[in-house]
């Protein structure tokens, strides 16, 4: 007979935590539950497959897309657009966010403006972007940029502001000058939070893909979804949306992995 010497953690403790195994078990249940509900609803015959295709239909449509269409090409171009738009945002938002979070004049100059612009719907910029940037790749990247940059800037500024004043003042009393405080204290201290911000905004970049590919696209996952909509190919719409979700999830996991690798001190006890 085996005796479990480690007491079970209570499941319903407030702010409790779960064993890894139980956590994943419950997470899989959640996924399966949705899948099951979908399957039952779509195969019952009560709903027209045009409105709700069955899971096999969706899988089949993805398969056809891979064989007869250009699924890999669509994935490649969409990944390119998302990554390019995101990187452009990050390259500009990083230094600017650090400055906004550190220096009051820069904050006064940019923060109210950014706060204002970030409430403007990215989709509404499409006509302007077409006018200014044209209708090629640059336009799609520009839409993703508009959708992510302003949020990213404000969030990075906030990450930087959350660096404890004590860390900064300790450096001052040790003789650090302004540049040293930014480079040796503020940056390394805010880095983990900034990487988290990048992870979250990367997710938003994926959600802007369909909007971006509204602009005169003829390839890409978002474009495929839009085209399928025109022909009422609900199964392909499902396949496209699920694929975008999966890619979003995959990039999210990559960021989490990078976080654990880059900041081991946060995960050590």
């Amino acid at each position: 007979m085996t005796v479990n010497l480690i007491p079970r953690r209570p499941l319903w403790a407030i702010r409790g935590s779960l064993d890894r195994r139980i956590h994943w078990l419950i997470a899989c249940c959640g996924l399966l539950l949705v899948l099951l509900a979908w399957w039952l609803a779509s195969t019952g015959g009560a709903v027209d497959p045009v409105f709700l295709p069955t899971p096999p239909l969706v899988l089949n449509s993805a398969w056809e897309w891979l064989h007869d269409g250009d699924l890999l090409g669509d994935i490649a171009i969409s990944v390119y657009r998302v990554v390019a738009g995101f990187l452009l945002s990050a390259v500009l938002a990083l230094p600017l966010g650090v400055l906004v979070g550190t220096y009051a004049p820069v904050k006064a100059l940019f923060e109210p403006l950014t706060d204002f612009i970030r409430y403007m719907p990215a989709a509404a910029f499409i006509p302007l972007v077409m006018l200014w940037v044209g209708i090629d790749e640059g336009a799609k990247i520009a839409i993703i940029f508009i959708g992510t940059f302003f949020q990213m800037l404000l969030m990075i500024a906030e990450d930087v502001r959350r660096v404890p004043m004590e860390q900064i003042e300790a450096a001052q009393t040790m003789g650090a000058d302004r540049d040293e405080i930014v480079m040796r204290v503020i940056m390394p201290s805010a880095k983990p939070a900034i990487l988290d911000t990048l992870r979250v905004t990367m997710g938003w970049a994926w959600t802007y893909l369909v909007v971006a590919e509204l602009v005169a696209a003829n390839s890409g996952l978002g474009f495929a979804v839009l085209k399928a909509q025109r022909f009422l190919q609900t199964d392909k719409i499902f396949a496209g949306i699920i694929l975008i979700g999966l890619f979003g999830l995959a990039t999210d996991q990559c960021f989490r992995w990078a976080h654990r690798r880059s900041f081991p001190w946060l995960y050590r006890r």
Partner: peptide
């Protein structure tokens, strides 16, 4: 202003966790 002849110890949050 601050100088290296005067060091400061705070109640908390002043160490560099990285």
């Amino acid at each position: 202003g601050p100088g290296i002849d005067r060091a400061m110890v705070f109640q908390h949050y002043s160490l560099y966790p990285w």
